[in-house]
């Protein structure tokens, strides 16, 4: 059992690395890169959502800002793409800190509303500020690898997103094993109680919010360099944000690999719908229905189903008194 649980991730990692060479065509490399991108974003989302229970439907704001930041730095200032990617992500994180201070003051549903407001706001700004962003016509970003053909670019970005995913997983894992992570989980369970135990909940939440925004912004920047053309309506769409939520919930927000598993199901399914049904809007209905079903019947996700401990309280009540008899002199 132990060997299986250690070996399985290694095997999957090896498979992921070999994936572009295993598939027969570049379309599947493209679809793979897209899936890994969503997996990285969902895992980053889970840095906030999974630990603290603050569900953000507006994380596409950070995706879009990261994308536009990188694109603008490259096109307007002629900054090398690596620098643009990093600087843009840092700027977005700083922005997230400012937003976070206001946003995490409210809990539960109010927080979700704020996150929706955030992404709508960013969408308005980017579309309205035509002179800088090109408005609703979009922004063209030159490819960082002009020597490569389209398929080779897909391969490069497949590995770039894979590295980002690995980084996000590593950070999630590290946080989950730290005292910081224990504090974040305590916030999810009972925020006032955590505060009374000395946990600076406000600072914790803002930190988690920023960390989560950082990796999503990096994904956005990579996306800008990869696709080369940014459409504000797409990158700031609530749909991207809801994909992150759906993937995480479906896989299981309490598990390291939950969002990854969710992405492996949802992203290919989305691509399949696109091919099978064409450019209709019915894929929205499919996404919506899956979300409804997950929320109703599997709110803890697939992994929780698989790893569920045996049902019912594991400690019989009377054992407390028995223990008391033993320790009371």
């Amino acid at each position: 059992m132990r060997i299986a649980s250690r070996g399985l991730p290694l095997l999957l990692a090896a498979l992921a690395i070999a994936y572009p060479w295993l598939v027969p065509n570049y379309y599947l490399v493209y679809a793979g890169a897209l899936t890994v991108m969503y997996a990285a974003m969902a895992t980053s989302w889970n840095l906030l959502g999974g630990f603290t229970g603050y569900v953000s439907l507006g994380h596409s704001a950070f995706f879009g800002l990261g994308a536009y930041g990188t694109g603008l730095l490259v096109t307007r200032l002629g900054v090398p793409w690596v620098v643009a990617l990093v600087v843009s992500a840092v700027l977005v994180t700083a922005f997230a800190a400012g937003v976070g201070v206001a946003a995490v003051r409210v809990r539960g549903a109010s927080f979700v509303i704020v996150s929706i407001a955030l992404v709508s706001m960013m969408n308005l700004v980017v579309q309205g500020w035509r002179s800088l962003t090109g408005g609703s016509t979009g922004l063209q970003v030159p490819s960082p690898f002009p020597g490569l053909h389209r398929g080779q670019t897909h391969m490069v970005f497949f590995y770039a997103f894979l590295a980002l995913l690995a980084l996000a997983l590593l950070v999630w894992w590290y946080v989950s094993r730290s005292r910081f992570g224990a504090g974040l989980r305590a916030i999810r369970e009972d925020e006032d109680k955590a505060e009374s135990l000395g946990v600076p909940t406000g600072a914790y939440k803002v930190t988690a919010f920023c960390l989560s925004a950082l990796f999503v912004a990096l994904a956005g920047g990579l996306y800008a360099l990869w696709f080369g053309s940014l459409d504000p309506i797409f990158v700031f769409s609530i749909l991207i944000g809801s994909y992150m939520v759906l993937m995480s919930l479906l896989g299981g927000v309490r598990h390291l690999f939950g969002p990854l598993l969710g992405a492996l199901i949802v992203a290919p399914a989305g691509e399949y719908f696109l091919i099978a049904l064409g450019e209709t809007q019915i894929h929205l209905t499919a996404t919506g229905l899956v979300l409804v079903l997950v929320v109703l019947f599997m709110p803890d996700g697939i992994l929780a189903r698989l790893t569920r401990r045996r049902a019912g309280p594991s400690i019989p009540d009377q054992s407390a008194d028995q223990r008391l008899q033993e320790v009371t002199p």
């Binding site: 439907l57 749909l239 809801s242 809007q281 019915i282 894929h283 929205l284 209905t285 499919a286 996404t287 919506g288 229905l289 899956v290 979300l291 409804v292 929320v295």
Partner: peptide, 9 residues
């Protein structure tokens, strides 16, 4: 939210 997506689609 899922209902909203369903209706929009």
């Amino acid at each position: 939210f899922g209902l909203a997506l369903t209706i929009e689609g």
